[in-house]
Amino acid sequence: MRLSILVGAVKAVLVAILLFVTLFPIYWMIVTSLEPWELVLVWPPSFLPRELTLEYWTWAWSRFLLPLRNSLIIAGVTTVISVALGFPAAYSFSRFRIGGTTLPFWVLSLRFLPGIVPCVAFYILFRTFGLLDTHLAVITAHLLITLPFSIWMFKVFLDAMPKDLEEAALVDGCTRYQVISKVVLPISLPSIAVVALFSFTWSWNEFMMALILTKSQAYTLPVMIAGFRGAGMIWGGVSAGALLSLVPAVILAVFFQRYLVAGLTMGAIKG
């Protein structure tokens, strides 16, 4: 009995350390965004802000509005296209057995493609058509990853779904399109939410392509944050902007726990 209490205590301590190491950086960004700049680097550091100011949040709000809007548009449109085109394609792959075993291989290898390869190609193409620094350029580049991802994830979900209902509907005289819109789509809503959120987060987080394809108009949050690199970094303001960019991550982590493994491994492991 006493041993089990001890074991429990050790586990609790280990978890406490773990949570501290994992969450402290985020907590520290919150502190940095609220404390006057002169006090942030005073040695020794104080773990509660010595003074509070909202100056950096107002600073960030005016400057981060444009990249925030760009990130929302780019990630939003990328997600809508990935889901709207990916779902029917996945249905087709799943039910008509097209694509076979090479599809998952291709999807995975695209994820591991070194960033420079698509970047060079997209840069030259969009430069030729005068489309650099537009939402369209970044959206197209992001579809390189999110569309294959969405097709593959939906296929994993659809493969696991029982087919009896669909067959019954087909026997009752529904067309395939009706089966999809009236039977398959309603029961797929949870998986659509998962795929949509992972696509959104992927596009929202992506940096290299957004960096290379944008300049002064269509740049996203990560590009904005990285732009402060070096001496001109205003920590409080950048921290506030960086905290804004954590929102999708927190939503996914808190509400979609069951699907984290599948989403992070692109369906290679179902979790």
Binding site: L23, F207, I225, A249, L264
Partner: peptide, 8 residues
């Protein structure tokens, strides 16, 4: 949360 955070 870290694994879903923008690497930047």
């Amino acid at each position: 949360i870290p694994a879903l955070t923008p690497p930047i």
